[in-house]
């Protein structure tokens, strides 16, 4: 039973970390970055493999993280310098890097068998069995420590840089007018996004990352009136989704990660329905337009 407990803790951590970074990315309209990094890491995996000549997990992780960071940075650069719209810059970068990765694999056909599904993407359900040891003492699952570290880093970043990040997610122009270095904080965000994404791919798999960046943040955005409310709301929503998802997975005997995503989706639907209901019942009372450009 302790396995299920570990899975719960790890999923809560992964949910919280991705919900935090996801909230910032949602406000910046580049939440598809998570999905993009999940594709572009292929290039990093192949490069790390070809350069080091080993399929050592640490090497793979390093290669993936570096290329994840590179693609996040390049995307940001294309958007700011080249004035390419966010989604297009994300797409151009990840398809290009992925294609380069496939070309490298094909070119070394006899020597390389790399597939992100096999060497990088972890499986939430198996995390409790992959434990770390100091000497002979079992100190708990590797994924737990990994995600704990990432979550702590994210909280540290938010504590230290809440004001610049707040200004940046509100609008880059606004941030620049306050004398905040847009390039610097965008780079910090890119580093954290790619670190969170790759650490979570490794721990719990890609689909949970893409979903937990987008779903809880948008659920929170339905009601949140400030960045602080949104961050807290997103973490709460991700925790609810994890609990609901575990129950769903147990009931259906199905993939836990997928069930958590579905639960998070149901939660968003619930929040949207509640909002619509509230708006209808108080339509005469007042209208609350949310800032939203099409």
């Amino acid at each position: 039973m302790s396995e299920i407990l570990w899975i719960l803790v790890i999923a809560l951590l992964a949910g919280a970390a991705n919900a935090l970074i996801g909230s910032l990315l949602v406000l910046q309209r580049r939440v598809m970055l998570g999905d993009a990094i999940s594709h572009s890491v292929l290039f990093g995996l192949v490069l790390a493999y070809l350069l080091s000549g080993s399929r050592d997990p640490l090497m793979m992780f390093g290669g993936a993280a570096l290329i994840g960071l590179f693609s996040a940075w390049l995307t940001d650069l294309l958007h700011r310098l080249g004035r390419v719209q966010h989604d297009a810059s994300i797409g151009v970068v990840f398809t290009f890097l992925f294609a380069l990765g496939v070309i490298l694999i094909a070119g070394h056909a006899d020597q390389v068998d790399i597939d992100p599904d096999c060497v990088l993407h972890g499986e939430l359900a198996l995390t409790p069995f992959d434990t770390l040891h100091i000497g002979d003492t079992d100190i708990g699952p590797r994924a737990f420590w990994q995600l704990l570290g990432v979550t702590a880093l994210l909280l540290l970043m938010l504590a230290v840089a809440y004001r610049p990040l707040h200004a940046l997610t509100f609008s880059a122009v606004h941030a620049a007018s306050l004398g905040i270095s847009v390039a610097l904080w965008n780079t910090v965000l890119a580093v954290m996004a790619s670190l969170t994404a790759v650490a979570s791919f490794d721990a719990v798999g890609a689909i949970l990352v893409v979903a937990m960046m987008a779903l809880p943040a948008n659920t929170a955005l339905v009601f949140a009136r400030s960045l602080q409310q949104m961050l807290i709301g997103a973490v709460l929503a991700s925790a609810l989704a994890v609990l609901g998802g575990l129950a769903l997975a147990a009931w259906l005997d199905a993939s836990i990660a997928a069930a958590i995503v579905v639960a998070a989706g149901l939660l968003l639907a619930l929040a949207l329905a509640l909002k619509a209901f509230l708006r209808r019942s108080s339509a005469a009372h007042r209208e609350t337009p949310r800032s939203q450009s099409a």
């Binding site: 396995e3 597939d115 096999c118 060497v119 359900a125 992959d130 259906l252 005997d253 199905a254 836990i256």
Partner: peptide, 29 residues
């Protein structure tokens, strides 16, 4: 991996797998 597979792995007295990367990350675990 499904939810029930955790219990199945947990209750096993012997786990036999192919290895040689057939099972991907699961093999590593």
């Amino acid at each position: 991996v499904s939810f029930g597979d955790i219990q199945r792995l947990n209750g096993a007295e012997l786990i036999v797998y192919n290895g040689l990367h057939l099972e991907g990350r699961m093999g590593q675990v």
